[in-house]
Lab assay of single mutants.
Amino acid sequence: MQRVNMIMAESPGLITICLLGYLLSAECTVFLDHENANKILNRPKRYNSGKLEEFVQGNLERECMEEKCSFEEAREVFENTERTTEFWKQYVDGDQCESNPCLNGGSCKDDINSYECWCPFGFEGKNCELDVTCNIKNGRCEQFCKNSADNKVVCSCTEGYRLAENQKSCEPAVPFPCGRVSVSQTSKLTRAETVFPDVDYVNSTEAETILDNITQSTQSFNDFTRVVGGEDAKPGQFPWQVVLNGKVDAFCGGSIVNEKWIVTAAHCVETGVKITVVAGEHNIEETEHTEQKRNVIRIIPHHNYNAAINKYNHDIALLELDEPLVLNSYVTPICIADKEYTNIFLKFGSGYVSGWGRVFHKGRSALVLQYLRVPLVDRATCLRSTKFTIYNNMFCAGFHEGGRDSCQGDSGGPHVTEVEGTSFLTGIISWGEECAMKGKYGIYTKVSRYVNWIKEKTKLT
Rank of each mutant, 00 (worst) to 15 (best):
H400M: 11
L41P: 03
A380V: 09
R180Y: 06
A380Q: 10
W431Y: 13
P175K: 11
V257W: 01
M437P: 07
P235L: 09
G403P: 15
F345V: 04
L52G: 11
I300E: 05
F238Q: 04
T215Y: 07
G432Y: 09
E340N: 09
P239S: 03
M8S: 13
T381K: 07
T422F: 03
N113H: 10
A317Y: 00
D315C: 01
F395I: 01
K188H: 08
G442A: 15
C335G: 01
F78L: 12
V419P: 00
V154M: 14
V451T: 06
N147D: 11
S350P: 10
E320Y: 03
K362T: 09
F221N: 10
A366F: 09
A9R: 13
P44Y: 13
V326A: 09
L103M: 14
V77W: 06
H415Y: 08
S448R: 02
G439H: 09
C396Q: 01
F55Y: 09
E401M: 11
I429S: 15
K311L: 08
K457F: 07
I284G: 09
N5H: 14
T287M: 15
K39L: 11
R379A: 08
D111I: 11
M437W: 11
G253D: 04
G363S: 12
C252M: 01
A366S: 06
F221L: 13
T386H: 10
G125P: 03
I299S: 12
G432K: 10
A279F: 02
I429C: 07
F78Q: 04
I344K: 13
L327P: 04
L32E: 15
I336Y: 02
E259W: 03
F345P: 02
R404D: 15
N222F: 10
F176Y: 11
D378C: 03
E66F: 04
R191S: 14
H361A: 08
A207M: 10
K387I: 05
E434K: 11
L327D: 01
V242S: 01
I336V: 09
S385L: 10
C396Y: 01
R379E: 11
Y352P: 03
G246K: 05
R62Y: 00
I297G: 04
H267V: 02
S406V: 07
G432R: 14
N135S: 14
E35I: 11
L41K: 04
H415I: 04
G58C: 04
R294S: 02
E53K: 00
S217A: 09
P375M: 11
T445D: 01
F144C: 01
R449D: 15
S25M: 12
N258T: 06
Q96R: 14
N166T: 04
L189G: 09
C145H: 02
L383E: 15
Y305V: 02
N135Q: 14
C178P: 02
R379F: 10
C435K: 04
Q143V: 02
K152Q: 09
L346S: 04
A337M: 02
K109Q: 11
C28A: 11
L24I: 08
I210C: 09
T342C: 04
G403C: 07
D223E: 08
L60W: 04
D110Q: 12
E82L: 04
V277Q: 00
I443Y: 06
K446M: 06
N203Y: 08
N258Q: 03
I300R: 03
T381D: 12
Y441N: 03
K446A: 09
A266T: 02
R180T: 05
F55E: 09
F176N: 08
F251H: 12
R384A: 13
I112G: 13
V263P: 00
D410L: 09
F399M: 09
N306E: 06
Q167M: 15
L23F: 14
V326T: 11
I390L: 15
D33T: 11
G94R: 13
G122I: 03
I300G: 01
N295R: 11
A233V: 08
N138H: 07
K168H: 13
F31A: 06
R364S: 15
C28Y: 02
V174I: 08
E76H: 02
C435I: 03
G253L: 10
G402A: 15
T287Y: 11
G236P: 05
S423R: 09
I297H: 06
D249C: 03
S406Y: 12
C28T: 13
T276D: 06
K152C: 06
G179V: 01
F388L: 15
K39P: 05
G21M: 14
F251P: 06
N313G: 06
D131P: 13
I17S: 03
S99R: 11
W118C: 15
E171H: 07
V227H: 07
E66P: 00
G272P: 12
T81S: 09
L318A: 03
F55R: 08
G229K: 14
K126L: 15
T215M: 05
D249T: 12
V451G: 04
N213K: 06
G439K: 08
Q96I: 10
L425K: 00
Q408P: 09
L20M: 12
G351Y: 01
T84V: 05
A265D: 01
L372H: 15
C128S: 03
K293Y: 15
E165C: 04
K146E: 14
I336A: 01
R191V: 15
N104I: 03
V273L: 14
D198H: 11
N36W: 07
T381V: 13
C268L: 01
T342L: 04
C335Y: 00
I262K: 00
E86S: 09
D33V: 11
K457P: 02
D110M: 10
V416K: 01
N310L: 04
R358V: 06
E124Y: 11
A9E: 11
K39H: 11
R404C: 13
P324Y: 04
D212L: 07
C141W: 00
G412P: 11
W453G: 00
I299P: 03
H314K: 02
S329C: 05
T209G: 14
K274C: 04
I454E: 00
T389W: 09
E67C: 00
E54S: 01
Q143S: 02
Y341F: 11
R358A: 09
L318N: 01
G272E: 08
T133R: 08
E76T: 01
I15P: 07
I17H: 04
L327T: 05
C134V: 03
F238R: 04
T264F: 02
K311Y: 05
A233F: 07
F224Y: 15
A37N: 02
S107H: 09
G236C: 03
G402H: 07
V296H: 01
I390F: 11
C18A: 15
V359D: 12
L52S: 08
E86R: 09
G122R: 06
I17F: 09
V374Y: 02
W240H: 02
F395R: 02
V228P: 07
T445W: 02
D95L: 09
R75P: 01
R379G: 06
Y330K: 05
V248L: 14
R75C: 04
K234W: 15
N59A: 05
G105A: 09
V374A: 11
N100W: 10
L41G: 03
A308E: 14
V447Y: 00
T381R: 11
E418T: 07
I17M: 12
T386S: 13
V416G: 05
N222S: 14
N127H: 15
L376E: 03
P235D: 04
